[in-house]
C-alpha cells in the first residue's frame, strides 16, 4: 500500500477496542445486574424462565445496564459490557409488558444513539461486523476475489431484514397475550435471538457453550437448526463483505434513522468525476453515492458510514461527513 488510510486505521482501532470490551467486559468488571432475567426492572412471568435458560450458559448480567443499537449480546460470556441489542430489548420487554415508565430510559438511550448516527454504530462498533471485516481482511491477504450480489439479491436480503425485524417484534407482542397459552411463549420468546449468529458466536468467543440445540419445544428445535443455517449464511461474509449486515434486524432498525440522522454523508455532485471508486470500494454494494448527480445527502439506509468511499475518493471535497450540517471530515 502506498497510501495510508487514516480513517480505516482509526476504525480498525475502534473496532478492536469495542470487540474486546463488548466480548470480555464481563471478565474485566463485575456485573451490576441482579438475579437472572430482571431486565430492565420488569418482572418476567415464570414460564419465560424456561425459554430463557440459554442465559444460564453465561450466568451473568451485563456491566452496563443499557441496550445498544448494534450487536452486543446478552448471551456473551459473563454478560458482556452492555445488556444487549435493540431488537433484544423490544422482544423481551414487549413480551414481558414492561411498563413504559421503566422502558423509557432505555428507549430514549437507543433512539438518541440512532438519531445521532444511524448505522454508524454498525460500521464502527459492532463486534459481529468486526468479525466480518476480519474475514474480508483474510480473504484479501489470500488474494481471493470478492463476490458480488446481484441487485435482485441485494433487494431480497434488505427486504428480508425488514420482514424479520417486524415479524420478530410482532411475535414478541403476540406471545405476551395469555390466551395463546404458555406454549407459544416457550417456543417464540426472543425469536430473533434463536437464530441470530451473534447468539452462537459471542458465547463461543467467551469460551462457553452457546446452546446449539434448544429442545424446549419442537419449534425451538427447528429454530435451533435455523441458527445453524444463519451461521452458515454468516460465513458467506468471507466472499461477500459484511454479508450478515444486509439482513441484520438490528441494523435494519438503525437504518430507518440513517437518512435523517444528525451524522450524514454529503456529496458535492459537481466535483464528482464519476470514477466509480466509491461504488467499487463499498462493502455493502451501495451505488447511490456514485449514481447521485444532484448532491447533498447521499446516506443510504444500508450505509454504515465506514467511510471507505470518502477515504478513497480522489476528488477534494466531493464527499464529506457532516454532523448537524457542520463538516467533520471530507475527501
Amino acid at each position: 500500500m502506498t497510501v495510508t488510510r487514516k480513517i480505516t486505521l482509526t476504525r480498525r482501532a475502534v473496532q478492536i477496542v469495542c470487540f474486546v470490551l463488548l466480548m470480555y467486559g464481563g471478565f474485566l468488571w463485575a456485573p451490576v445486574g441482579g438475579p437472572l432475567g430482571k431486565i430492565p426492572g420488569g418482572s418476567p412471568r415464570t414460564t419465560t424462565y424456561a425459554r430463557d435458560r440459554i442465559l444460564w450458559v453465561s450466568g451473568k448480567e451485563s456491566v452496563i445496564d443499557f441496550y445498544v443499537p448494534f450487536l452486543s449480546c446478552r448471551f456473551t460470556a459473563k454478560g458482556g459490557l452492555f445488556k444487549s441489542c435493540s431488537v433484544h430489548f423490544f422482544s423481551e420487554n414487549f413480551t414481558w409488558r414492561t411498563s413504559l415508565k421503566l422502558m423509557m430510559p432505555h428507549i430514549l438511550f437507543l433512539v438518541t444513539l440512532m438519531v445521532l448516527a444511524g448505522r454508524f454504530w454498525c460500521g464502527w462498533f459492532c463486534p459481529l461486523g468486526a468479525i466480518m471485516d476480519f474475514m474480508t481482511w483474510i480473504r484479501r491477504l489470500a488474494g481471493w476475489p470478492r463476490r458480488y450480489l446481484s441487485p435482485a439479491w441485494q433487494r431480497f436480503l434488505t427486504n428480508t431484514g425488514h420482514v424479520v425485524l417486524w415479524v420478530c417484534i410482532a411475535v414478541a407482542i403476540l406471545i405476551s397475550f395469555p390466551f395463546l397459552g404458555t406454549g407459544a411463549n416457550d417456543s417464540l420468546f426472543l425469536l430473533y435471538c434463536q437464530f441470530c449468529p451473534a447468539r452462537l458466536i459471542y458465547p463461543l468467543l467467551g469460551g462457553v457453550n452457546p446452546c446449539w440445540y434448544d429442545k424446549t419445544t419442537t419449534i425451538t428445535y427447528i429454530l435451533s437448526w435455523c441458527g445453524w443455517a444463519t451461521l452458515a449464511v454468516f460465513f458467506l461474509g468471507i466472499w461477500f463483505p459484511r454479508f450478515w449486515c444486509r439482513v441484520c434486524a438490528i441494523g435494519t432498525l438503525s437504518g430507518y434513522f440513517n437518512r435523517g440522522s444528525l451524522l450524514s454523508l454529503d456529496k458535492k455532485a459537481r466535483a464528482c468525476t464519476s470514477c466509480g471508486t466509491c461504488a467499487r470500494n463499498c462493502p455493502v454494494d451501495i451505488e447511490a453515492v456514485y449514481r447521485d448527480r444532484r448532491g447533498n445527502i447521499v446516506t443510504d439506509p444500508r450505509c454504515q458510514l465506514c467511510l471507505q468511499c470518502l477515504e478513497d475518493c480522489p476528488e477534494e471535497g466531493c464527499l464529506e461527513v457532516k454532523f448537524l450540517g457542520k463538516r467533520i471530515i471530507s475527501s
Binding site: L141, G143, W144, P145, T273, R280, P314
Partner: peptide
C-alpha cells in the same frame, strides 16, 4: 486519475 482498490484479487 488514481486507481483506488482495496480488494486484492486479479479480477
Amino acid at each position: 486519475q488514481p486507481t483506488e482498490i482495496r480488494e486484492n484479487s486479479l479480477p
